[in-house]
Every structure is written in C-alpha cells, then in structure tokens.
C-alpha cells in the first residue's frame, strides 16, 4: 500500500540515488545517548551545513557515520550500501572499511599524526591503490588549493600552526576520490581570518557528483554559500532535515 499514492510521484530527476541516507540513527557512548533517531538524506553535488551549539551531537553524527561511536543503531547508507549496522560495536572497528566506501572525514581538532611530515601526511590519505599511484599529481592539486603548504612539505606536522594543520587535515581528506566529505568545525580554534580562508578553500573544492557536509558553530560563515543549512539540537536535526520527506513532496494542490 503506497503512502504517497495521492500526491504527485517523487521527482527523482537525479541519475543516481542519494549519497548518504540515514534513517533512525541513534548513537552514543556507554550510558549516554547523544543522537536521537535522526534522519538525513544528502544528494550528489550537495554542500550541506550543519549548525548547532557545543555538545548537541554534530561531531557525534560524523563519528557515527564513520563508525567511531561507542554504539549506534539505525541505518546509514553510503552510496546505497549499508555501513551503519545496528550492532553495538567497538569504536573504530569498521571505520577503515567505511572510509574505503568513499568517505573522507576531516575531524575536529588535531586528529593527525604528529611525527609525519606534511608530505607523508598527504600520502597517508591516499589509501586506494589508484590514489597511491597517482599521489604526485594529487598532491599538486592540493598544493594549488593550499599554497602555504608548498614550502612546508618536509616539516613534521607537529610543528605547524593550527591553521596549517587544518589545511593538512583537509588536504589529506582530498587525496582520494571520496563520495562524501565530512568537515568538522573547520574554523574551530582558528583566528577569524584564517578560519575564513579555510572556509573559502572548502567552498572552492569542485564537488562534482560527491557531496560535502560541514559542521559549524558559526552560521555566518556558512550562510549563502551552502545548498542548505540544518540546525542540530539535542541530538536531532531541526529545520529542513526533519522534513526530508517534504523535499520530495509537492504542495501545489
């Protein structure tokens, strides 16, 4: 029995399905549940902003997509393939497999390898055999996006400044052809000007058929530059997100 029978049929003009489809996701750590029954659909070519205060689950959402939370339930489909699972899993146990499905996570803070040089760092991002073979031109491409890194290639990342680290972190994520980029608070802890620069660079990235979600506390940095903005409040998405169905239905009756 179709529930949307009476309305106009869903307009699926896109050639492929959504890149990310989250249904009924709950996730948390131990006794604490951070994300409550969340739904989200991200389509190819979309640049999405998630805005919310500290501790409302933006990072946890990203970690849940990457399989890094303490436990999670519900369905996460990446490129139509189920990566979430409803098991209570140890954090990070399947992350590398999820990542290999086409996910690039640029985490909040300095989730980077202190001892490696910038160049090795970028290399480490090239985890598919193809990317590893083509790592030289890819590095060039990233250096074109972040020119300041060019003269730092041989410097251990531990010695870089916060902004440079963020650039390295984002550059590392760009080394493979990901279908979905998750950028967690690109401006956190950076001077406003540098933060803006990092944001510019993110906006400048050609998405093609992939998609990008940027989590940010500062709405001003996102407004007008992303395709849609969702608010995150105590573990649920408000705004457009909860009406994901609405984006499919038409109201011109």
């Amino acid at each position: 029995m179709s529930k949307t029978y009476w309305n106009a049929p869903v307009a699926s003009s896109e050639p492929q399905g959504p890149i990310l489809e989250i249904k009924g996701l709950s996730a948390g750590y131990g006794p604490m549940r951070v994300i409550h029954d969340l739904d989200l659909v991200v389509r190819p070519g979309e640049r999405l902003g998630v805005v919310g205060l500290n501790g409302h689950g933006k990072s946890t959402l990203f970690l849940a997509i990457a399989g890094l939370t303490g436990w999670q339930r519900g369905s996460i489909k990446l490129n139509g393939r189920e990566v979430g699972g409803s098991r209570s899993q140890g954090p990070g146990r399947y992350t590398h497999l999820i990542v290999r499905q086409g996910l690039a996570v640029m985490p909040q803070g300095d989730e980077i390898f202190h001892g490696l040089t910038v160049e090795e760092h970028l290399d480490s991002g090239a985890f598919t055999p193809r990317a590893w073979r083509e790592r030289a031109p890819r590095k060039e491409r990233i250096l074109a996006i972040f020119p300041p890194l060019r003269k730092l290639m041989k410097v251990p990342v531990g010695r870089l400044s916060g902004g440079e680290r963020r650039m390295v972190s984002i550059g590392r994520g760009l080394m493979v052809d990901a279908a979905l980029f998750l950028v967690d608070e690109p401006s956190l802890g950076l001077a406003p000007k540098i933060g803006k620069g990092v944001m510019e660079a993110l906006m400048a990235i050609e998405l093609g058929s992939s998609a990008m979600i940027i989590a940010e506390q500062n709405v001003a940095l996102l407004e007008g530059r992303v395709d849609r903005i969702l608010g995150m409040h105590v573990g649920t998405l408000k705004g457009e997100a909860s009406t994901s169905l609405a984006s499919q239905t038409k109201r011109d009756l």
């Binding site: 990070g92 590398h96 497999l97 990542v99 290999r100 989730e111 390898f113 001892g115 480490s124 985890f127």
Partner: peptide
C-alpha cells in the same frame, strides 16, 4: 608509522 602516532586517525585514512 601512522598507526603508531594516532590509531584513531589512522582508521580515518583507511588503515584497518
């Protein structure tokens, strides 16, 4: 070498 510095981040760059 990456795993030795940060196993969490290592899994994020596809290292099992």
């Amino acid at each position: 070498r990456a795993m030795m510095m940060n196993p969490h981040a290592a899994s994020l760059v596809g290292i099992g």
